[in-house]
């Protein structure tokens, strides 16, 4: 799985959780999910569940804490699917 594929899938997962005033094309690797993309922190667990389903992986709670930016999240997926 390439980094680009993971990124595309991840953006599709994140998309519904973005506030109305944040556009999909603003989602770049350096963006912080909560601070920059303004995703409600309660929804992070839903995004994690969607990622688990999509990539058939399991993400432990302590790893969730490391998924701050889009880049972090892609890294976690790549690492788990490696």
């Amino acid at each position: 799985m390439t980094r680009e594929t993971v990124k595309t899938d991840l953006i599709n997962i994140i998309k519904p959780y973005l506030p109305e005033n944040i556009m999909e094309n603003e989602v770049s690797e350096d963006k912080h999910l909560i601070n920059d993309l303004m995703i409600n922190s309660a929804h992070i667990v839903d995004i994690v569940l969607d990622i688990e389903d999509k990539f058939d992986i399991m993400i432990d709670d302590d790893v969730i804490g490391e998924m701050n930016t889009v880049q972090d999240s892609i890294d976690v997926v790549l690492q788990k699917t490696a």
Partner: peptide, 8 residues
């Protein structure tokens, strides 16, 4: 409905 609610 707003996007999040409509989709989720």
């Amino acid at each position: 409905l707003p996007r999040l609610l409509a989709e989720k």
